[in-house]
Structure formats: C-alpha cells, structure tokens
Design a protein around this nucleic acid. Structure first.
Lengths: 362, 362
DNA sequence: TTGTACGCGTTATCAG
DNA sequence: CTGATAACGCGTACAA
C-alpha cells in the first residue's frame, strides 16, 4: 500500500497528470464538468493528498509559517499560539514553533532553523538584543515582529520588518487614570528583572509621561526574580505606616483611613503580576494582615486569575485575536509579494475595570 | 541575489555536486581532507543551506514533528511544548503545532493537516472521542499519544500507537495518602466538566480504589464551568456546620476544632484547580471567612501559583522534561523504522508536600 | 576518493 | 479544454 501519486489519479481518471494538477489547484477557467467529476471521484475514493515536499519544491512555497516565542510560559504566548493557529488553519497554513526562552542566541538559532526548515515567513516575539539576526533573516523571508520591537526600533527603517503591537501608550494611560481615579498618590510600575524588552521600555516611557502629566509620584521598579528579594522590594514600597492600622474585627469595610489606597501598583505583564502576588503574600506577615488592602493593583494581560485574586484586578487587556489576525494577514501579504514600506500596526486593547480600583475602598 | 544551490557550491569548490552532498551528510568513509576543507570554506562563506523541500522529496523525511494539543491554555501544554522544542532542536527537527481546543472534530482535522504538511510523526495529546481518526493516522505515520490514552485504551492493541504518560495511579495514591495523613475523613476528586479524557477516567478509577483501601469516604465530582454553579457545588461539599465557627479575631491559628481539615479536595489538573480556587472564593461569603481553612487542597500539575495560594498547595507534579524526552525518543525510534509492538511508557512524577496538607492545622 | 546520471512528485510552459 | 514535457534541488547507485 505505497503512497498514491498524482500519476495514479490521472490514470484511474483517464486524464493526464497535468489535468489532475489543475483540478487540485482549481484553476479559474478550468475543465469540463465531466472530467472534474471523474477526477473528484478518484481523489475522494483514494484519499489522495499531494506531497507537500514535491509541491513545495516546485512552487517555492511551503505553506509553513515560523513562529518564535520569547517565553511560552507567559500565557499571552499560549493565547497567541492558539489564535495564530486558527488563522493559519483557515488559510491552509501550518505553524512551526520555536521557543527562545528569552535568550538572544537561542532566538537567533531558532530563526535560522525555521528558515532552513523552509518557512515562508517568520513571526517573532523577540526577546531583544537580536537586531542583527532579525534584519538578516528579513532578507531571506518576510519577518513580522509580534508585540516587541527591535532594540533599535528599526522596524520602520529597514525595508521588510513589520510590527504588530498593542496601543501600549493608551493602555498605560488608562491604568494610570484608574489608579489616580481611586485615590492613589503614588504609582509604581513593576517590570521584569533582567528582561529589557521593547515593550517594557515603551510602557515605562509612557508611564513616566503620564504620571508627570497628572502630577502624582511615579517610580519604575524591576521586580527581582527571587521571592524574598521581591518581597523586600514590595515591603519597602508599601513601607512607612505599615502594620499599625489595627486588625479589622469581624465586620469589614470599616475604618477606611484616608491613607488607604495611596499606593498604586502596575504590573507590566502577567508574569510580573504573578510574581507581585507572590511577593505580596511573602511580605504580608511583616506588613500586617491587610497590607493587600492598602495597595491598589493593576496589571497588563487578562488571565483567569485576574478575576478572582483580590476580588478582581483591573486589567489592561490586549486583543489577542485581533493581533493574531493582523500578524497573519501582514505575513500573508508579504508572502504574496507586497513590497510596500514596513508597517507598524497598533491593535487597540481595553481597560477592564474591577474591584481593585473601585472608588469606594475595598 | 538568488538562492544558492548545491551546484554553485560544487563549482566554486571545484568538485561535483555529489561530493558536496556527501560533505553535507558527512558520509562515513568520506573524502580528502583537502576537498572537505575547500567545500567547508565555500559553504561557510556563502551561508549555503540545503533546500528542505528538495531534500525531503528525495529522502522522504521532512524533519518535521507534528504536535497536537488538546488545550494550549493548560500550562501543562505550554511546558510540554517548550520541553519538546528542546528535544527537537537537539535532533535537527522542527515542531509543527496544532490546537484542537478539546474538540474531536478539530483534532481529527489537525491530524489530517499535519500529515498533509508532511510530518514524519505525530504527537497527540488527544481530547478523546477520536479513536478512529487516530488509528487511521497511525497507518500513515507513527503516532505517539501524549498523556491521554484512546477511549478504547487501544494503545497496546493496535500496532503502532505508543503512549507516554505519568504514573497516575501512584500519584493519586500519594495525594490520597497526604490527605488522609493530615486528618481528612472524606476526600473529593474534582474533575473537569464535559471533558471525559482518559486521564480523568484513569485517575478517577485509581481514586476509588485508594479511598476504599484506606477506608475513608470518597466522591468524584465534575466541577461545573460556571463559577456560580461551581461555588454551589463546593458550598454543598463544605456544607454542614458552615459559617458558625465564629470570626477569628486578630490572632489566628486558634480554635482549631476537630472538625477542621476533615474535607480533602483533589483537583484532577491545573485548570480544575484554578476553577476550584475561584469557586472557593465565590462561595466564601456564604461559608464564613475561614471556610478555606476547613478544607485540605491538593492538585495535579505544578505551577507557580501552587506555591503561593493557600500558603502552598500539596501537588502531584509530572516530570515534564522526562515525558518530553520519552515522547520524542519514541517518535524518533518509530521514524527510524522500529516496528516493535506498541509501548506504554509511564514516567514517574512526584508528590510535593506543602502547607495545605501539613499535620498541624494551618 | 570522486564524478555521472537518474529520479523523487509536482507544477508551469507550450502545443494542439 | 487537455496532454506531453521540462524543470525544481537534492541524494545515491554505479562507474571510474
């Protein structure tokens, strides 16, 4: 039961291989309804599928899209993978994935592998520090940056590097607004230690502008990976009049001193948010039972636990589906020969207001 | 600057294409050190990479491994993707991924697509209800089941379907032991509503045996997806003497009635555990502040939040790296022509004991 | 040790 | 509307 080839189909249908090929690629002004039917019958009966390698060799198209994730443990990446899968599926494409683990060398290797494997185009969620490799790659196949820009911000300069990202400036602004709106006098943006992605920089820059504009104190802190160190960082931030608020006895929602809600925290992404929660819990014993209630939490990235932790955390959610659509669409356009200037596509996200920044103290 | 072919390398190195090919595939007893060096120089200088499609057409090997995930939102899948990537990378393979979203039809389609795309073998984390499609696929390419067995448990019957999974029976036994050890008189296994995977069945079966063996009350509950319904389920389980425990004033760790710690909960996977936490929080108001303290939590799958929620949750952790190694190794063996009987590989996981099942009441 | 010649399965060109 | 034929780039018997 060897593999069935196009020639076999041709013989059984009483036509030539060329005609079968035309049938498979449904050429516009095609063939007799009769021959079409005959071929269809044979194809159906034999379950024939053209060999990808042969087709690819001839057409110089693999129907393969390479995707490189910086950190697949970040649920944003998972969601994006699923969304991209859906897009690819609809277009008859398959996804080849690679994970860089936030390592530039690993990312460069992944890009090289995917290219060697024949990817028609690359989608790269770059970890930074890899501008050269990516620009080089873009000369062999279209490259669409996902979420994160090059360090040099060269996306617009170089010819073929497109980028799709969220409207981070507006989202940062939205979160700052939420925090200020619920009474925060000081706001801290928490970023990931050791990771200097363009997103971090972009959000940090917007942040500085925004806090200055509304006249509250702002600070950017890179949260340590180590829980104890992170707890110490958080502790010193919450700091000052900690632990002397008195236990809340039985009924809660009382004694809402005006010092409450003064510190606003903003996690730059879901991973940092999780670290933040962990650090808060670790720091809790030293800060008193209700330390959590004296800070206002907000975060980027919408995950299940945002709804439940702290009674609901105000979130800047990115539109994963729309981003995936834009990324895939742009990649396809490039594959189809679009040689226009590099594009920068900003997909609007939205602020989801939850209890953590509610007007009346929690 | 067209693509450089093997013929170009041959010309520049002053040899024939055949010799270059031999160089690329480093044939054993090969060639003069001189010619080897000359070819190496040219290959290096031009950055030549053989065209995957042409090579694949000739060798009938794509160096592509297809992977189908049932639920990529499940962090177990992300971790597995990363581990599999590492394995593939080392063997010169690339991963083609697809996501079924726990839909049998979608899974069947994904398998078909990956096969059409030329995958040398398939790794399937099946969602169940798809035995036919998978068996059919296994006749075209090796299929290795990941974690979940066929509904019919046919893995050993059919010729080529291998399966790699954890030692679920032992892990269930371990968790039951932990719960009994900290004083639970009743244990409930929480499963995912609407998903009837083999893992759920397997763990549930072991569970029933185990609770019977140690003589405690056991129950299996499929947790509703809807938070309110789930909360009601949890509420009725915690049930009975709820809410009349008196608020714990200031100091805690007191009034540990002997009714404490009587109910043991075991989440069948990380997703269910998250739903459980959410349900617990939703049910809390009606159950009294410290309802969480009257139940003992355990769960399968080790994630970051297991360390932090409830002060640490006792976990049955699977050895993702070892599983990935076994899966990939088995796939490679099949690709390399191993026609031996189907294998069932059980990779041992381990119990991580945390505060949630500590002897002294939390 | 190295070169020659052929074929892998498909699509594109060109006649008819 | 259809068929014959020539590539696509590479690996591998076979011959030298």
């Amino acid at each position: 039961m060897a593999r069935v080839r196009i020639k076999d189909i041709a013989e059984q249908a009483g036509v030539s291989a060329a005609t079968v090929s035309r049938y498979l690629n449904n050429t516009p002004g095609a063939m007799t309804e009769d021959t079409r039917a005959r071929i269809a019958e044979v194809v159906e009966r034999t379950g024939y599928r053209p060999l990808a390698a042969a087709r690819s060799l001839r057409t110089d198209r693999s129907q393969l899209l390479g995707v490189v994730f910086a950190d697949i443990a970040n649920p944003y990446s998972s969601a994006m993978l699923e969304a991209l899968s859906r897009e690819a599926e609809g277009a008859g494409y398959s996804l080849m994935t690679a994970v860089s683990g936030n390592g530039p060398a690993s990312e460069a290797a992944a890009v090289e592998r995917l290219l060697s494997a024949g990817a028609d185009a690359l989608v790269v969620n770059t970890c930074g520090g890899n501008d050269e490799a990516l620009i080089e790659a873009s000369r062999k196949a279209p490259v669409v940056l996902l979420d994160r820009d090059l360090d040099g911000g060269l996306a617009r300069v170089d010819r073929k590097l497109d980028i799709v990202t969220s409207n981070n400036a507006e989202l940062v602004n939205g979160l700052v607004g939420e925090l200020v709106g619920c009474g925060c006098k000081k706001i801290v943006l928490l970023t990931q230690s050791g990771i200097a992605s363009s997103i971090r920089r972009e959000r940090a820059a917007s942040f500085s502008d925004d806090v200055a504009a509304v006249g509250v104190e702002g600070e950017v802190v890179a949260l340590e990976d180590d829980v104890q160190k992170a707890a110490a960082q958080i502790g010193s931030l919450v700091g000052g009049g900690a632990g002397c608020d008195g236990g809340n006895v039985g009924d809660k929602g009382r004694d809402d001193g005006e010092r409450r809600g003064e510190l606003g925290l903003m996690a730059v992404n879901g991973v940092v948010f999780l670290q933040l929660i962990e650090a808060l819990q670790a720091a809790n014993p030293g800060l008193g039972e209700d330390a959590e209630r004296r800070v206002r939490l907000t975060t980027f990235d919408e995950y299940a636990w945002n709804r439940m932790l702290m009674g609901g955390v105000t979130t800047a959610a990115q539109d994963v589906g729309a981003i995936a659509r834009a990324v895939f669409g742009q990649a396809m356009a490039r594959i189809d020969g679009d040689r226009g200037p590099a594009r920068r596509i900003e997909v609007p996200g939205r602020i989801i207001r939850r209890a953590s920044t509610a007007r009346r103290p929690v």
